[in-house]
Amino acid sequence: MKLLDVQDLTICFGGVIAVNEVSFALQAGETLGVIGPNGSGKTTLFNLLSGIYKPTSGTITLAGKLTQGLRTDEIFHLGLSRTFQNGRLFWNLNVLENIMMGLEEVRNTSIVGSIMGMQKEKDLQKQAVQKASKIMEIFGTLLTSQANKVASDLPYADRRRLEICRAIASNPKVILLDEPSAGMDGIETEILMNDLLKVKKALPELSIIVVEHDMGFIKGLVDKVMVLDYGKCIAYGLFDDVAANEDVIKAYLGQGDEAC
């Protein structure tokens, strides 16, 4: 069964059609790359998937459930987690706390229990700390050594890592990565690439949708690619097929001398 099924998704802001009848499907463990120039509707697509925007028309089915009318947090509970283009960590919380925010335990605490100092709540808290520490270990000691540092004090690349950790903390079925390489140079991008491959290896069942405007970056990462242009899906399929597609080359890659 398809994990995520998107049919004819459309949204208009005023008169502008930001996403225009986009359809695609995702299997468990599959990775999809979404590419396209700036303003082609990539981030809007993510905002639709995670429920921040309500689509004008079209449907999203996640794990067999229609997400229509669900709040952002309810969609998260169906197993969809995401990162943001411009970070959006909880800047004044420390690394561990940021990851903990992705965990179920935080939402399962009973308020009465926590003010009474009940054992159950203490256990829950301990469990959350343990889980969060474990998740950090995906990146070896890079994050564990700074577990009590405030997020805004982290170096840029570690912020990205932290974001990924926070996104996978809840054991989601799908994660959406919004331009994870934004603002990074070549070497950093390569390291990030390795990080993502690590994540993929550690969580083989996880489906990933990654937005990028650089096709080169996602080459080794994705199974399938979708190309957006002015909100419309102009190509969708295996990476090599898409890369060879005439339309894509014309609309996007064709502008060869323009650095991405």
């Binding site: 802001f13 005023g14 981030t43 993510f46 905002n47 921040i52 925007y53 943001f84 283009q85 959006r88």
Partner: peptide, 8 residues
């Protein structure tokens, strides 16, 4: 005003 969309 028109409905504002939060920048994400």
């Amino acid at each position: 005003g028109e409905r504002a969309y939060e920048k994400v």
